[in-house]
Design a protein around this nucleic acid. Structure first.
Ligand SMILES: [Mn+2]
Ligand SMILES: [Mn+2]
Ligand SMILES: [Mn+2]
Ligand SMILES: [Mn+2]
Lengths: 226, 226
DNA sequence: ACAAACTTTTAGTCTGGCCTAAATTTATAG
DNA sequence: CTATAAATTTAGGCCAGACTAAAAGTTTGT
């Protein structure tokens, strides 16, 4: 137990999340995600790469990746975060666009005991309110399944698997039109050149179609239905 | 909103708590309570006394007291702490000797929204699990009622009002023999020269008497019954 | 009243985590 | 292949909040 700081936890979590998309993580991407100057990121990265245990692999100008020790910490923090989101939503009545900010602070502070207790109360859940998989206590994590809705074409039917949770205004909008995990949607129409997708929500086709722009459909991940 | 740090919150809370006993608060007492070197306390005190808004009144070598601004912050933190203790106990099943440590960390991090939500769920409670009064959102606080059990004499009957919550081993012991807020106790005997107090717990006098030393009876506050 | 003992403050340092400005390295476009 | 642009690192600082060692102030006991 080496007393990992709040800041280090946030760096490792951010690296993990960026690594999911893009293999190596760039200084700039990290700086932007953390709201910090690029020079600060370089400084922190050097510590993470030099101190023992090493949390990242780092080659100058070449980006950074997590070591397995780093990944373990990241998954612990993400487990805290996602369990907290679900707990805030289910037990305290937070709406799904409010949970992220609160969990962001609590994740660094709760004990393992707290973690275990809310996990038990929630029935050892596998997904958070946005559909993201919750890592296990052992440090494994299920596949964040689904493909971007933006890739579908007219006529296809799908189940919403998860939704990016970083934009709280977007989450409010999506909840308003019924786009939440497990909702069933049908692509009514797709305009060319990355034009809006027209989507009906719910099993009935009598619901109104909603026109969703690229930014929105890139934030929604779905699983195709046969 | 001046972004009050975690450390400042703990200093103000500690000053408040020490002030309850002893009017002015000494550097050493504060250092011991916070687990920090006296020199560090002097440094922080100077900031608290110089920055605007001033949180403490301070005269060199003469100790420190809270200003009303400082008191307000202290009571906010204490409200968080005590609501959290009760929530952890009631909603998450923590025992009363475990709640303090967890609340100590969470108190600095929860939002006003979180505070409001747990207060509502708990029914806007007035006391925490140890019988301490919970400050209101407006910054008032009820009297921490009761007198030390050590002051009673043989034959007196009383209701337990509250128990010092800082020693977790003591709390476990007391819970084991039934000394919790609202328990009724009778002083069976008192040995001279600050000797142990023999106390029966519960309304029936057939219960065994427990011998409690000064350190213990100083930690228990009671209200005399007629 | 005064020395010893205790308390408190000063002086000087350290670490973590951030910043800006300037230098350097890598990528890109003609 | 070079010139510019973009990304990254270095250099130099700042601030909060701790520390130790030494100085100064206060209390106490005789
Ligand atoms: Mn965070
Ligand atoms: Mn989420
Ligand atoms: Mn605290
Ligand atoms: Mn308490």
């Amino acid at each position: 137990m080496e007393a990992i700081s709040h800041a280090v936890e946030d760096y490792l979590k951010a690296i993990y999340e960026l690594q999911e998309d893009t293999g190596k993580v760039s200084t700039n991407a990290l700086a932007e995600k953390l709201g910090v100057a690029p020079a600060s990121v370089t400084g922190m990265i050097k510590k993470l790469a030099e101190d023992r245990p090493r949390f990242v692999d780092y080659e100058k100008h070449r980006g950074v990746t997590l070591t397995s020790a780093g990944r373990k910490i990241a998954l612990e923090v993400i487990r805290h975060h996602r369990l907290l989101e679900l707990y805030l939503h289910q037990a305290l009545g937070y709406s799904w666009d409010e949970v992220d900010a609160e969990a962001e602070k609590l994740e660094h502070v709760i004990s393992e005991d707290f973690e275990d207790r809310i996990a038990t109360i929630l029935g050892n859940p596998e997904r958070d309110p946005h559909g993201d998989p919750i890592p296990t206590k052992e440090g494994t994590i299920a596949d964040p399944c689904g493909q971007p809705l933006s890739g579908l074409t007219a006529g296809q039917q799908a189940r919403v698997a998860r939704v990016r949770d970083d934009d709280s205004a977007l989450l409010r909008y999506l909840a308003g039109i019924g786009i939440v995990p497990d909702a069933v949607i049908v692509v009514a129409d797709k305009a060319p050149f990355n034009g809006p997708l027209h989507v009906r929500v719910g099993p009935q086709s009598d619901s109104p179609a909603h026109a969703l722009g690229k930014q929105v459909t890139d934030s929604i991940y779905v699983e195709l239905k046969p």
